[in-house]
Design a protein around this nucleic acid. Structure first.
Lengths: 146, 146
DNA sequence: GCCTACTGTTGCATAATGCAACAGAATCGT
DNA sequence: ACGATTCTGTTGCATTATGCAACAGTAGGC
């Protein structure tokens, strides 16, 4: 009995995750100001992870290096990120990326927009429910390297 | 204090949702057998919603009618769905879609694959945790028409 | 110093999507 | 009953995001 309930829950989880993915993807197509979903993701990752190289992003996002190469160069063209000058003392290959001041400003603006939208979406939720949502999603995302 | 914790939780929710969306999207590019993510979504919706027309799918998925038109026609070409014969007694415009037996079989197969993958992913979770995940995602998806 | 491996780039390609215009048909108003 | 309106689905043209394969440059290992 409990086992069948678990199966039903897992099936429901899949459906909800698919619906959520589709909705977020659809919304990201409509709302691409000031950063698109992809741009925001990269900029956020670079901001949060010191010493990021393009190949690190590719690994983290499960994207091809060519995809990230193009996306990073677009961010550079937009003035949002830059390659750090190569530090000869630094071991390893690859060039380290960092946000520019402009990139930081755009990230803050997009993040503020997203925060406002989500705050409104969750306005009927209690603090405990929001905390539970955050914790459950964090747990679900843990170690999720397919 | 509690208010600031709520803000931090909301910010975390956004990050987790973005990570989840990206990972599901990346995985859907890798795993497109027997149905792609898009195909699976449409077939699942048609199976679950009697009387579905292409325009209903467009509304539910927040896609352009042209996109759904092409996708539906591809499913028809693959023998997964078909238009019902037009019922003259039926009011309203548009043509109703239904799954073929082949479509039902492919849906069942993809659903079984997804169920197995997700069951494995959640193997370390208790029944209560899985139920909470399903309930929390359902709650989050409710009324989420951006 | 040469070979290997890593990183990033580029040409060519696919998938998914949207806009605008169009065509056909159902619905509505007179 | 007929014309106008509206809805639905299609199609041409386009963009965005992505991957594969091959390549070039360079760091690291032996």
């Amino acid at each position: 009995m409990a086992e069948r309930s678990r199966e039903a829950d897992i099936e429901a989880v899949y459906g909800h995750v698919a619906d959520l993915t589709r909705r977020v993807t659809a919304r990201s197509r409509r709302l691409s100001e000031p950063l698109t979903f992809v741009q925001h993701s990269l900029v956020r990752f670079i901001a949060a992870t010191a010493g990021t190289r393009a190949t690190d992003i590719a690994a983290a996002f499960q994207l091809n290096r060519s995809t990230v190469s193009r996306q990073v160069n677009e961010l550079i063209t937009l003035g949002l990120v830059r390659y750090l000058p190569h530090d000869d003392d630094e071991p390893g290959r690859g060039r380290v990326l960092e946000l520019t001041a402009h990139g930081r400003a755009q990230l803050d603006r997009t993040a503020a927009d997203q925060q406002r939208i989500l705050t409104h979406r969750l306005s009927g939720w209690t603090d405990a429910q929001v905390a539970a949502l955050a914790a459950t999603l964090a747990h679900f995302n843990e170690g999720a390297d397919d």
